Amino acid sequence: MYPTLNLALIQTYLHWEKPEANRKMFEDKIAGISHDVDLIVLPEMFTTGFTMNPDVIAKEESEITVQWMHTIAQNNNAAVMGSIVYREEDAFYNRLFFVSPDQEMYTYNKRHTFTLAGENEVYKAGNQKLIFEYKGFKICPMICYDLRFPVWARNTENYDILIYVANWPKKRINAWDTLLKARAIENMSYSIGVNRSGIDELGFEYPGHSAIYNVLGEPLVFSRNEEILYAKLHKEHIENTRNKLKFLEDRDTFNLIK
């Protein structure tokens, strides 16, 4: 029997630079999940919003949030994923965490820091792509601006699911919609984007547009509203499509040198 994966994507506003308030908000929303789920996905920098002032966040907040994610995963018997402002000694990272109910944890540091907002001057960029297995699926998580760089996401590892967590603004939302779909088609994988909604303290508006596309680039869910989106992913869909359409076998081979 082929495995399936039940997802809950939480699309919501964020309290600006208020980790405790955001944890409480997400805790309440997660308590209201109405389906059996295996993985809960939160937006980018889900405890602060897309802040370029990480120094205003108390040093202990990084580990408090990681422990909170462990508790959420255990209490809900579901993995939880999202990125946060993470302080490591004198450096800051936009770091994604995946925590499973059995306390397995993976991390990914955002590779492409957003130069237009000066993120590259504040946060240290990562250089390691992450692929991990969960419930029979190989998952590749990435963060927001990474979406614009298809070489970094190229499916040379035969992953099944590509997930982007984001704070993607309304003024460039057409690019988000187009590139999420393109990543599904070119990589023959599920492509998932979880964006925030609302307006932040800097006046940027975020319209949601969280979505899931299947291996053929067909939309499974899409929303502009503040809500929880649900979907069931099927390994059978991936394998049957790839066996019929062997496009990945014709992909170019390459090595990243930087």
Rank of each mutant, 00 (worst) to 15 (best):
L5C: 05
N6Q: 14
N6Y: 03
L7P: 01
L7N: 04
A8Y: 01
L9K: 04
I10Y: 03
Q11K: 07
Q11A: 07
T12L: 06
T12N: 15
Y13F: 09
L14Y: 01
H15N: 14
N22G: 01
K24A: 07
K24S: 06
K24I: 02
K29M: 15
K29L: 15
G32K: 15
G32L: 13
I33W: 02
H35S: 10
D36H: 09
D36F: 07
V37C: 07
I40L: 06
V41E: 02
L42S: 01
L42P: 00
E44H: 14
M45H: 10
F46K: 05
T47F: 01
T48A: 02
M52Y: 09
M52G: 11
N53M: 05
N53K: 10
P54I: 05
D55L: 05
V56I: 06
K59H: 15
S62A: 14
V66F: 12
W68N: 09
M69E: 05
N76C: 06
N76H: 11
N77Y: 03
N77K: 15
A79Q: 04
G82P: 00
G82D: 03
S83C: 07
S83T: 08
I84F: 08
V85T: 06
R87G: 08
R87L: 15
E89G: 08
E89H: 08
A91D: 06
F92S: 13
Y93G: 08
N94M: 10
V99M: 07
P101M: 13
T107H: 02
Y108L: 08
Y108A: 06
K110D: 12
R111T: 12
R111S: 12
T115V: 13
T115F: 05
L116R: 14
E119D: 15
E119M: 07
N120W: 06
N120C: 14
N120V: 11
N120I: 10
K124D: 11
Q128D: 15
Q128I: 12
K129Y: 10
K129D: 10
I131F: 11
G136P: 04
G136R: 01
C140L: 00
C140G: 11
P141W: 03
C144M: 06
L147A: 09
